[in-house]
Design a protein around this nucleic acid. Structure first.
Lengths: 350, 350
DNA sequence: TTACCTAGCGAAAACGTTTTCGTGTTAAGA
DNA sequence: TCTTAACACGAAAACGTTTTCGCTAGGTAA
């Protein structure tokens, strides 16, 4: 087992100085053709590669991006990571992942672990607990220390940083309009409590779509689920709540669910109640994940283009990192990119 | 914007030496109570944190684990990452993720990027292309340079490293035995071509289960799918193949699918052909993902405990890293941990 | 008084690079 | 022969730590 070879070892072996080796490997004109060849041959033989850590220390940058997301076992977030990784790698960066698990403390700790030199900047989506507590000091501190952040999906406006968001309102509008245009008169929404920003926005889109078509929203058709129910353990509670919704509103002919799970659960319940889909009940969901595509009936859904979001976020971050490099005057102008959604029509609507 | 403060700056500010500051912060007895308090107060005020990169360089270890997986938009792999991240964080390590995208080249490049000092060891699952080409030099080279590897799920025996694998054979046996015990007489398997190691093993389990029950396997009931069809674009081809299987074998009353997608697709096709599930056709799948749980009917499935695999892999790797540290004599004894599967019974079987 | 100990601190090396700034040798020009 | 310039290379600093080893001043023991 031979350890990784260093410049020093090569220098010693060839009886030249470290500087000479370094220069020879970088094809400096200062070094004679002879020496250069000798060094390069030797380096190749021993498979020399510069030590990244030493380079990071010297250059004061790591060429690594830190990602903090609430969870990874989630179609949308893993798609985003795929996108980030794609452009990061293309542009010579690595990606280091921290999971907040929707917890404020873990988010803070994870950011501290990474902010001490391990990475050049963050791409993150805020934990639910953080959104609830509205404590964002760890973000501002990080930014104040000169480390740029790009937020995606779950963002807060008061933080000065680039952001990549989904057009939740319009996405929801598209979904509801689809239901309206196919003849639904009583459209229910299954959404989350308002502190989940995306839930709130999608609810808003739902209301706007109804308003645009002169339909008066009924509060009995708006079901707000306590978000913790997303965890699988509470699936039965979720089912009960939805069943209650259907039973007390027999006239429902369309459902807009703000995520896949709510949608498939709604379908499951509806079937149990003898409703036929899409004939007597149409369903549209948000988030185009594996469930939408492969459940029966497959779901008409609003696609958020997670990968594209990741790609954009990575580009924004790296652009800013490399701009700082040349122009020490950083402009404090931050961008908010909105990624448009698409409505993907499948079997759950007419 | 104030940049991160360093020992040097604190030293200058307080008019002491760098060594004194360092020692004071680490509560060395060499430093007087007075100085210690002064330094610690100052450090706290300016929120001093040691620079990770400098520590990594000095200690010759990064406290970071490199993960290379074929893809991340996949329930099993993201579960594994969750597990790795969990114990890594608990034990003071970070996690850096590389995606091979099932490509040999990307696997090699990713490993090279990380192996140059960025990480202390790898946890990985081999890309399909690598398995096909059977070129494993990048693994042996990494190991020869003194960097430990832990492989999980898709492993090759000839590489000297710790491994964490699923008991695919027994998992498949459990699945098939479930079908047999509920009265199935003609059990088909939908699997992958043999170069995918896990597909091969699950097929083997299927055959063994049949044999154990004196059932003669029929080659017409074994459908081997070209694995590239897993990508969504080829869904229709997959459907056609399965339809063909059912049509030419009307007597099939049980299906064992080696992954969720094959299973739900089989169910879809079966329904189209008028088969009732689980009454006239029972289905068991491998991999307990989101589809199994939430599709209708929900799937009886073999759970691989991805998170547990991740946790175990991380523990194995970190144990080895910290063993190297104390005892320079590394024992070249590698462990292969087998994680048992569980059969989770749901609606797709009787 | 001499010798010695100890508390408290600083200098310097080391981790592996890159880069700036010498410096010595040789050959060409005057 | 002397000056100068090009050439080829080396020394050293810097990135931010930790740690070993010395050093000094003051105190204690003989």
């Amino acid at each position: 087992m031979r350890r990784k070879v260093t410049l020093k070892q090569i220098a010693k072996e060839l009886d030249v100085s470290i500087s000479t080796v370094s220069k020879a490997l970088r094809n400096s004109i200062e070094i004679s053709e002879d020496t250069r060849q000798k060094v390069q041959a030797f380096a190749k033989l021993y498979n020399y590669r510069p030590n990244n850590i030493a380079l990071s220390l010297k250059n004061r940058k790591t060429k690594t991006i830190g990602i903090i997301i609430p969870e990874i076992v989630h179609h949308f977030f893993s798609k985003v990571i795929t996108g980030i990784e794609l452009v990061a790698n293309k542009r010579g960066y690595n990606v280091i992942v921290g999971l907040s698990n929707e917890s404020f403390d873990k988010e803070v700790i994870n950011m501290q672990m990474l902010a001490n030199g391990s990475i050049d900047g963050f791409i993150l989506s805020i934990a639910k607990e953080t959104l609830q507590q509205q404590d964002y000091h760890h973000f501002t501190e990080t930014i104040n220390q000169g480390m740029p952040i790009v937020m995606f999906d779950r963002v807060v406006n008061e933080i000065p940083c680039d952001k990549v968001i989904v057009d939740d309102i319009n996405g929801a509008k598209k979904a509801v309009e689809k239901l309206i245009s196919t003849g639904c008169k009583n459209i229910a929404i299954i959404t989350t409590k308002d502190y989940v920003s995306v839930g709130k926005l999608r609810t808003q889109g739902y209301l706007e779509a109804l308003e645009d078509h002169k339909i008066h929203p009924k509060s009995s058709l708006i079901l707000k689920i306590e978000d913790k129910l997303l965890s699988d353990d509470h699936l039965d509670i979720l089912e009960k709540e939805i069943e209650q919704l259907f039973k007390s509103n027999k006239s429902i002919d369309g459902v807009f669910a703000v995520n896949e799970l709510y949608a498939v659960t709604a379908i499951k319940v509806a079937r149990k109640l003898g409703l036929e889909i899409p004939k007597s009940l149409q369903v549209v969901s948000f988030t185009d994940g594996v469930l939408s595509k492969h459940s029966t009936p497959s779901l008409t859904t609003v696609s958020q283009h997670g990968q594209q979001i990741g790609e954009k976020a990575a580009d924004l971050l790296i652009n800013r990192l490399e701009l700082e490099e040349t122009d020490e005057e950083e402009e404090e102008i931050y961008e908010t990119v909105i990624i448009e959604t698409d409505l993907i029509e499948r079997e759950s609507t007419k």
